[in-house]
């Protein structure tokens, strides 16, 4: 029961409190780049969840059975980038061959995710936080869901911004960045919520 409770806390805290986009400011470029329309934002979010899970499943064993054994913990970043990039490429080839429909819908986003810092951030944070394999997977799922949540919320905010009459000098990116910072402030309201939920 305690483990289950622990997993729920990890999930909720990575979705809401430590939201990768809005609290840790990782993965900002897809957040600003693909959040213009709701369907694109959802597609990107789902792809990120998928890649985060697969990347964690691949990097956790590498860290614990290869790098830690050889005392090469400091090579973590480079090895992880290498593995994640190759992995995403591999997934793309497999999808193209066996599930063309999924490839058509995720295809545009997969190459974008290859070098996404949120994915690298999740895998590295899972190691530094000392999670075991299951906990790491749950934390990645939470991070992905949090990314999806942020993308979907922000695409709604953006569609409102598109129609508003902002001053000329604020039009485009500036007003988007201001809106992003306000949404991010709103997410700081979640700090402390998770501890209270299961106290």
């Amino acid at each position: 029961m305690d483990t289950f409770r622990n997993l729920i806390i990890i999930l909720m805290s990575s979705v809401l409190v430590n939201n990768y986009v809005l609290s840790r400011f990782l993965g900002i470029c897809p957040f600003l780049g693909v959040s213009k329309k709701l369907d694109q934002a959802t597609g990107m979010g789902v792809s990120v969840i998928f890649v985060m899970l697969v990347a964690t499943a691949a990097t956790w064993p590498i860290q614990h059975f290869v790098l830690d054994e050889l005392g090469l913990g400091y090579m973590q970043t480079i090895v992880f980038i290498l593995v994640i990039a190759a992995l995403v490429q591999f997934i793309e080839i497999v999808l193209k061959k066996y599930i063309p429909s999924l490839h058509a819908s995720l295809g545009v986003y997969l190459p974008l995710i290859t070098t996404n810092c949120a994915v690298l951030g999740v895998t590295i944070n899972n190691i530094t936080d000392g999670y075991n394999f299951i906990e790491s997977l749950v934390s990645s799922l939470g991070a992905g869901l949090g990314f999806l949540l942020a993308m979907v919320l922000f695409s709604g905010v953006r569609s409102r911004i598109e129609n508003c009459d902002a001053p000329e000098c604020f039009k485009g990116l500036p007003v988007t960045l201001i809106a992003a910072s306000i949404v991010s402030l709103a997410f700081f309201g979640f700090a402390g919520v998770v501890d209270g939920l299961f106290a």
Partner: peptide, 12 residues
């Protein structure tokens, strides 16, 4: 190690 990881990925 890094070369090995790279080569494994490349072959794959």
């Amino acid at each position: 190690v890094v070369a090995a990881v790279g080569i494994i990925c490349a072959v794959l």
